[in-house]
Design a protein around this nucleic acid. Sequence first.
DNA 1: CACAGTAGGTAAATCGTATTACCTACTGTC
DNA 2: GACAGTAGGTAATACGATTTACCTACTGTG
Lengths: 310, 310
Amino acid sequence: MSRSPRATAKDVARASGVSQTTVSFVLNGAAGHVSEETRERVRQAAHELGYVPNGSAQALRKGASRIVLLNIEGAPTGSSLGSYIKGLDAELAVHQHVLLVLHGHLSSQALSDVAQAVSARAVIDLGDAGRADDLGTDTETSLDAFSAQADVPVRYLVDRGHRHLATAMPDTPELRTLAGLRGRLIRRATHAAGLPDCPTLVLPGSLDTAEERLRAFRTEHPDVTAVLAYNDDLALVTLAAMRRLGLRAPDDLAVIGFDDTPHGALFSPALTTVHIDAEAIGRSAARGALGLPAADTASEPAQVIVRESA
Amino acid sequence: MSRSPRATAKDVARASGVSQTTVSFVLNGAAGHVSEETRERVRQAAHELGYVPNGSAQALRKGASRIVLLNIEGAPTGSSLGSYIKGLDAELAVHQHVLLVLHGHLSSQALSDVAQAVSARAVIDLGDAGRADDLGTDTETSLDAFSAQADVPVRYLVDRGHRHLATAMPDTPELRTLAGLRGRLIRRATHAAGLPDCPTLVLPGSLDTAEERLRAFRTEHPDVTAVLAYNDDLALVTLAAMRRLGLRAPDDLAVIGFDDTPHGALFSPALTTVHIDAEAIGRSAARGALGLPAADTASEPAQVIVRESA
DNA sequence: CACAGTAGGTAAATCGTATTACCTACTGTC
DNA sequence: GACAGTAGGTAATACGATTTACCTACTGTG
């Protein structure tokens, strides 16, 4: 079917007895006047030869490739970030683009170097929120959308009578920028709800240290009755530490996660969490990156999945 | 520092008073005779202009880009696959390559089309194991290395007196190929250990159905005393289903996971799991893809992290 | 002095595509 | 029958790098 050196536009031209120019016109549906017969002949030949345009050549000529860069700063893609990527990827695929995910930690400079190297069509930098420290501007980035629904769980907790909330944040540098953003949004939401200041419980991955930290936090902030964790993983750490300390959720302390990962339901007590339509956010981020008008289907609002822990 | 249109080799040439040919020779450290003075002058100019070679042009000329494709078939990167990617990414970065991760589900054809479109330097296809159905050939792909250490947990269980083992596999199509491979390797290991046939417990993500399935499985295979799950997530589903049925691990049924994810330690009973040096496997996969000799530092062997569940 | 060899460098072709600027019929209109 | 307009198409160039083939001193050697 396809010989070793793959067919070029010139090959297609030769096979269909026209010039390479015409091939290009036909295959790009461009303006050049070409008769319907010829169009068909060219399409045929292209199909038979298994012609796939060389992306590098296209990128060189047009100044931009069909690659969109996503920098996730080493964050794990298991949670809603995974769905986000899925949506992004799917929507890009519709428009013949591919998503290039950078899992490493890059400086802003390194990132833009890679961007140039592949002539990226667009760059989505989830580490950017940490660099540009002015959350005030309404850039409405995907990150914003990602974390914006912080007030949904806050309202839920308030409705249940909680007034002293706290956030649980990871101490790993990988997540600092993303976590920082979500933390600020939560604080903004509590403030808007007229609640007192919202202290932060910094938790490590290790259970031993977590227990330690939680104990200290409880004595320092005895009036806190509910914890909003950065994500489900951290919420589970909190619950596990509570179990060690003999505390029960939600009575001693209510815990609510973020992301609706599968693990949450398995735990005992089952984790109450916030479901975000990350896939839709990803799709809309894709449209944004490509400069397309916003999609017709908006994303569903955030939703509290009520289980046992809050 | 860097004006809008980024500097090309021609700009560097002009700035340092040489031809573009010379610039290319200097920057690639190639054979062409160039005096040390000139070299230095060119490097200076390149640095000052913030010159980054245009990857598309390079790819076009050389026939291959500095991009390596990884198809993960939509699998979540939270577990050891995440570490694998991290290692792959890091090692590739050392050699100035970038990893392009495809999260969608592509046909073999679509994959090779993308590969051509970006002139990929190499393609690593984790879905490939499912397509090429002859596990017999010793291709020693990264997948092989990935799942090869199946006999470590089997030996561990046998040492503890278990003789009737089972595997727990997901019913999601995303993971079928990877899971299938690991399942076959486990079966091969049990067979090599002279154990009786090893039935498969197919588990869904939903806890309700899981409970159902487990109950049925227990009546059908009453002699099974230990379960090797495809990964930690599935192991936790098993444990949660057991709790619902009033079963205790490890006494009623021993459960062992795969991947050593953080959640395992949080659970009660804490999950016994298999730690794989996935990052090293990733690094070596990178070297393989680039055609480099195998690294000096081999990966550590698989290791059972003994906690409570087995 | 003639001639080879080398150090230091450059012009030009090439990769595969998109696009601009042409060019050649042919048709209709007055 | 002159002239405009259009349908259908092509030649040539540019994108930015790599690489081959060449070119010009200059140096040493017999």
